[in-house]
Amino acid sequence: MTRVLSLILYLILAPFVGAFLDGIDRKITARMQGRKGPPIWQPFYDLFKLFSKQMIAVNSVQLLLNCSYLIFLAVAGGMVFFGTDILMSLFILSTADMFLILAASSDSSPYSNIGASREMMQMMSYEPMTLLIAVGFYLATGSFRVDEIIAQETCAFWMMPGLFVGFILIMAIKLRKSPFDLSTSHHAHQEVVKGITTEMSGPTLAIMEIGEYYEKMLLLAVVALFFIDSSIISWILGIVLCLGVYFLEILIDNVCARVNWHKLLDICWLITLLCGGINILILMLI
């Protein structure tokens, strides 16, 4: 019953919470940059505005692919909130991302194609870490299933600190934070116009944004998964730490300059090997 409830809550609330967090993110970012920043509800205004816009498109499939992107992200997140297999959920997450890449490649626009290529590069960079994190949960708790992971006596974090560091890293990529915002950026200083979203407009773009909110909630849920165990306090701790990690991402976003793809791949794979690989090795040995 709780599982169904949490699934329904996720499906309904995730976009709202995600957008709200986005509003806070923009406010904090503005303050860090010495600006006043938009109102906290700005993401909601943006979404309404996007939905009310005229439907223009560069081709007939982009909307369909973006909708599929949204649905698969919701499915991937839903799997975590429903308490099923986390590895499968991460696989579905990649499938969802692939739909976004296809949406961007479906038009022969130079900028969105560059964005799509860079998105693929980002995917290649974070993919090993996501797999290792799922493996880490399995080794630490004996199960890939979320409902069994959160029913443990002690939280998984103590068994997998290296993987947690790695997760913060790949979360920066997934949330499109500097220094890893190669494919598209929330900041205005983009040299590839708007990258992967260049050709998306109006409702199509809004759907993509909502998808990203679902994704954000999924990622935060995985952060919480590191800390939640059978006690109630751990849930509160988990939520607090989620917000802490989110703040950390904002901080990273504002203090780093964007790296090129070479660096991105090198950093990610190196950290995956060092933090992830060694953590997994230790987990296997004990």
């Binding site: 990649s94 693929m120 590069m121 995917m123 090993p128 797999l131 290792l132 995956t272």
Partner: peptide, 13 residues
């Protein structure tokens, strides 16, 4: 495990 993690990333690419 590491081979399969990195290998499937590049496969995806």
């Amino acid at each position: 495990v590491i081979c399969i993690a990195f290998g499937s990333a590049s496969t995806m690419f």
